[in-house]
Simulated scan of single mutants.
Amino acid sequence: MDDPPTEAEIVALSSDHMQAAAAIRRVALWQRLPWLPDLHTPWEDEQYWRMHLLPNCTILGAAMGNRLIGVIAYGDNWIEQLYILPDFQGMGIGSLLLGCAKEEMGEIRLWTFQRNIGARAFYERHGFAAAEETDGADNEEREPDVLYHWRRLPELTPVLQPSDG
């Protein structure tokens, strides 16, 4: 059900992939949240990925064959972007990408829109808790959003009890 598909391969993305990464974000966001204002051109989206995210984040992609179907950008305890093409959602690809970020970071924060019920359920299934809700005044879409937080639980070391023998 939410198991990672065997065909998906996780790959590190380079500048050659930024146009495709920006396009995945654009398609996934506008198909799932059509009420959001379209504030940037595809070229501006690509430049954001190329000039801001690529130098400051780890950017991974999920690929099937030669097709990029999902992307994640993360670093400094933040997930900046996580998008899966709508036709490939619900197949475990987002879980696979999120798992890569969780392996590298012991604490993660991220923002999503309050009305993005699917994303909220996804993050909550993966142990994230809502930490703050806003009216959207501080994001460019002016859409109410929610800050999620996840923290890795500390490893428990078993305490050996002295034996009675």
Rank of each mutant, 00 (worst) to 15 (best):
M1E: 11
D2A: 14
D3A: 14
T6D: 10
A8K: 05
A8W: 01
I10F: 07
S14W: 11
S15K: 14
H17I: 06
Q19P: 01
Q19T: 13
A20N: 10
A20W: 05
A21E: 06
A23R: 12
I24F: 00
R25V: 02
R25I: 01
V27H: 00
L29Q: 14
L29C: 13
L29W: 10
W30Q: 15
W30N: 14
P34A: 13
P34V: 12
L36V: 12
D38V: 15
L39K: 13
P42Y: 12
P42W: 11
W43D: 13
W43G: 03
E44R: 03
Q47V: 06
Q47H: 04
H52S: 13
L53R: 04
L53I: 00
L54P: 08
P55V: 03
T58V: 12
T58D: 02
I59W: 04
I59H: 09
G61W: 00
A62I: 08
A62E: 06
A62M: 09
A63K: 10
A63P: 07
M64V: 15
M64A: 11
G65C: 11
G65S: 11
N66H: 14
G70F: 00
G70H: 00
I72Y: 07
I72G: 03
A73G: 12
G75A: 02
N77V: 07
W78A: 10
W78H: 05
I79A: 04
I79N: 02
I79M: 08
E80V: 06
Q81Y: 05
L82D: 09
I84D: 01
P86D: 05
D87T: 10
F88D: 06
F88K: 05
F88C: 12
F88Y: 15
M91E: 05
I93Y: 06
G94T: 02
G94P: 00
L96V: 11
L97F: 09
C100R: 14
K102A: 11
K102P: 07
K102R: 15
K102M: 15
K102I: 10
E103F: 11
G106L: 15
I108Q: 03
I108T: 07
W111R: 03
W111S: 02
T112Q: 02
Q114I: 12
Q114W: 13
R115P: 08
N116Y: 06
G118P: 07
A119F: 02
R120P: 03
A121G: 04
F122Q: 06
Y123W: 05
H126S: 09
F128P: 00
A129W: 06
E133A: 13
E133F: 03
T134D: 13
D138W: 02
D138C: 08
E140M: 13
E140P: 01
E141G: 04
E141Q: 09
E141W: 05
E141I: 07
P144E: 01
P144T: 05
D145A: 08
D145R: 01
Y148M: 05
Y148V: 06
H149N: 08
R151L: 14
R152V: 10
L153G: 06
E155V: 13
L156P: 00
T157C: 04
Q161C: 10
P162V: 10
P162N: 08
S163W: 08
S163E: 12
D164L: 14
G165M: 12
G165P: 03
